[in-house]
């Protein structure tokens, strides 16, 4: 089953084409990272997937053929929007009760245990929690719904590094323990590269690359070298060109001669601030959670 399947998907806001000709199929059981610079169309794609907006062209189905936003789709998808919106004047406990009332499934015991574990008092108003706690509360509400797909829009953008780490650990635990498919977006690749096993790269409203991380790593290289020589690679399948001045970065599909470094040119891992995917490292660091995940055979 594909948790998300799109064909020729496009979204237009007035005269702005936020998303165009987007076709993809994300299989179940992956932690999928949707990366790209700001304005690439990530939030647009996620809003379409959770049914908050409707596509201008093309088709999109979720959870194996369901219409986004339909009751069947809403039941199975939990969404944590950007900046984790919560009712600030409601207490954490009220937010639990609210979410329980609004959903068919809600594992109250799990949610309460998780808040206790995180040290979030149920009496405290959501607006008075720290940023990290608000994000964790929103994630708790989403996970307690026992979704089949968890969609997170820029979940850690506002968090400090420690809260970021804790949050991503929580997401991964859910993915591993409960087999939840996860789709999360970010404009900073660094926060996703250790957790995702499926990668979608977007820029200017288009999908540039989509596939399993292992395959992408095997087949793509980032080349960095003098701009003057960049044109030598134009005949290759170049995915993205960037950089300025004397240095140029090329993301290319790997061929025999780029797999091994040559004189005057080197392959390397793109810097973490790079807006492009890091695909060059031949053996990416694997966190224990992912290994455990692989052993559960939920992955395809």
């Amino acid at each position: 089953m594909n948790v998300i399947e799109a064909t020729g998907l496009g979204k237009r806001y007035g005269s702005t084409q936020a998303l165009r000709a987007c076709s993809l199929a994300i299989p179940e059981g992956h932690v999928t990272a949707l990366v790209g610079p700001n304005g690439a169309g990530k939030s647009t794609l996620l809003n379409l997937a959770v049914g908050l907006s409707a596509p201008s062209e093309g088709t999109l189905t979720v959870l194996g053929g369901r219409a986004p936003g339909s009751l069947a789709a809403l039941d199975g998808i939990a969404f944590v929007a950007q900046d984790t919106p919560l009712y600030k004047h409601l207490s954490a406990g009220d937010m639990l009760h609210l979410t329980r009332n609004l959903n068919r499934c809600f594992d109250r015991a799990y949610a309460e245990a998780r808040l206790a574990e995180l040290g979030i008092p149920q009496k405290r108003k959501a607006g008075r929690l720290s940023g990290g706690q608000q994000a964790q509360l929103a994630l708790t509400l989403a996970l307690a719904r026992r979704p089949r797909l968890l969609v997170l829009d820029e979940p850690v953008a506002m968090l400090d590094p420690i809260a970021r780490h804790d949050f991503m650990a929580s997401v991964l635990t859910a993915a591993v323990d409960d087999g939840v498919s996860v789709l999360l977006s970010s404009h900073v690749l660094a926060e996703l590269e250790r957790v995702a096993d499926y990668l979608i790269v977007m820029s200017s409203g288009r999908i540039q690359v989509a596939g399993e991380v292992d395959d992408l790593l095997a087949n793509h290289r980032v080349l960095t070298g003098p701009t003057a020589e960049a044109c030598r690679y134009v005949e290759r399948p170049v995915v993205q060109v960037g950089g300025g001045g004397a240095q140029a970065h090329l993301l290319v599909r790997a061929t025999a001669d780029t797999r091994s470094p040559r004189a005057g040119r080197r392959t390397r891992s793109a810097s973490k601030s790079s807006p492009w995917p890091t695909c060059a490292s031949p053996t990416p660091p694997r966190c224990p959670a992912r290994s455990a995940r692989a052993m559960t055979t939920r992955r395809r």
Binding site: V50, G51, L52, G69, L71, L74, D75, I77, A78, F79, A81, Q82, D83, P85, L86, Y87, K88, T99, N101, L102, N103, R104, C105, A138, R145
Partner: peptide
């Protein structure tokens, strides 16, 4: 204004029924 419609309308109850 608060952006909470993104929370409310993605719950299982459904947007127009809410």
């Amino acid at each position: 204004e608060a952006g909470t419609f993104r929370y409310a309308w993605t719950q299982g109850f459904g947007r127009w029924r809410w």
